[in-house]
Simulated scan of single mutants.
Amino acid sequence: MWRSIASNALSLLIVVLLLCGGVILWGKGQYTTAGPLDQAICLRVETGSNMRRVSDELANQGAITNGRIFLAGADYEDKASKLKAGSYLITDGSSMQQIVDQITTSGRSTCGTEVNYRIGILSAELQVRELDPATNRYVEVLAHDPAEGEAPAEYAEVAAQSDVRYRVTLAEGVTSWQVVDALKSAEFLTGEVSNLPAEGSLAPDSYELTRGADRAELIARMELAQAELIAELWPARAEGLPLANEQEALILASIIEKETGVSSEREQVSSVFINRLNQGIRLQTDPTVIYGITNGQGSLGRGLRQSELRRETPYNTYVIDALPPTPIANPGRASIEAALNPANTDFIFFVADGTGGHAFAKTLAEHNRNVAEWRKIEAERANQ
């Protein structure tokens, strides 16, 4: 009898163990396999939240199938106490394990609200954007020019959120003075910039940072990025260029940056200036003359006068025989690459063609025809 009871108990225990093992395997499968999301969502984890609240939110949004398994998995991996506040893009099909990893690892927000301070050629703009999880694209919800006065109340509400991400974006061709002047108006930055960075020394790019970041440290990041970029590109330059060093490459790149906004013709514009330097022909480019007048402190706001084209300054390339002494703006990668690897052409002239690009010429006669055509286009536009 006792032997029969023992046998039955052992059998029952085996069944229970098998069932437990099956449940564990099933739970593990639920935790590691693709989840039910068919469209990405943005999960916001508040400061002071916990894994149970996150589990409930994920369940409400249809991102997980079982909150208990989610919690058990996070606890088993010893991640339940490592939750980090932020806004996280949870992509479609994310497993519970992937979600736990995402919200406990870096704490870096990947969706939600972003403040992007764009410093452009003519103005700076503070943009507030929201990431649309469905399209993974940012949607602008607010734009404000700090130079026009106090930011709207909506911005103050956004700035008060702890998980808002900040970035500063420099357009290609901005001057160092424009950058420093614009950064002074960025209320989310701190500290002072004691010295104006050398022209051409800042890399046009997008710089992610946190609220309260130091302005001088941000400038240092921009300088380091540009120094690393020119150090990377200089060794790969074409042979025989009339450029003595990296600084001269930056000078030429800045002129190219200011002469054309059409990416496909940068190498051709570069070839014109390289050909002129090789043949001892003056560069005769308006942007350098303008820089000599404004010192990079904003736009000229009018056309150049004949007296200004004749006046001898270090930046008047209608008068001086070579490159100006410094860059006239901060060039981006594409213009630096064009300066170091120009197209192989015989062009020594170019003029606007009315489409936003330029008409190039090898001879003065051909150039004069292009100029006449451009004057005709200008006259037609003036009469419209």
Rank of each mutant, 00 (worst) to 15 (best):
A6C: 03
N8T: 09
L12T: 10
L17Q: 04
G21H: 06
T32D: 12
T33N: 11
P36W: 11
D38A: 10
C42F: 04
R44C: 08
T47S: 11
L58F: 08
L58N: 03
N60M: 02
I64H: 01
R68C: 06
R68L: 15
A74Y: 10
D75E: 15
E77K: 07
D78H: 13
K79N: 07
S81E: 14
L83N: 06
G86Q: 10
Y88F: 15
L89R: 08
I90E: 04
T91M: 05
S94Q: 06
Q98Y: 04
Q98E: 15
Q102S: 06
G107K: 01
R108M: 09
S109D: 14
N116H: 07
Y117H: 04
S123E: 10
A124T: 06
E125L: 15
V128R: 03
A134W: 11
N136R: 12
R137I: 03
Y138R: 07
V139S: 07
V141K: 15
A143M: 04
G149W: 11
E150W: 05
A151T: 03
V158S: 01
A160W: 10
Q161H: 13
Q161W: 09
S162R: 02
D163E: 15
Y166Q: 03
Y166V: 01
R167N: 15
T169A: 13
T169Q: 14
A171Y: 15
G173Q: 08
S176I: 01
V179G: 04
L196R: 12
G200W: 10
S206P: 12
L209P: 05
R211L: 02
A216R: 07
R221H: 04
E223M: 12
L224N: 15
I230H: 02
A231I: 06
P235V: 02
A236I: 07
R237D: 02
E246V: 09
L250H: 10
L250D: 02
S254L: 09
S254I: 09
E257W: 14
S264N: 05
S264R: 07
V269N: 00
F273K: 05
G280I: 09
I281P: 01
Q284T: 10
T285P: 07
T288C: 09
Y291A: 05
T294Q: 01
T294G: 09
L300N: 04
S307N: 07
L309Y: 11
R310Q: 13
P314S: 02
Y315D: 05
V319F: 03
D321K: 14
D321A: 14
P327N: 03
I328Q: 08
A334Y: 07
E337M: 08
P342F: 12
A343Y: 08
N344R: 05
F350E: 05
T355K: 13
F360K: 06
N370I: 05
E373Q: 13
R381C: 01
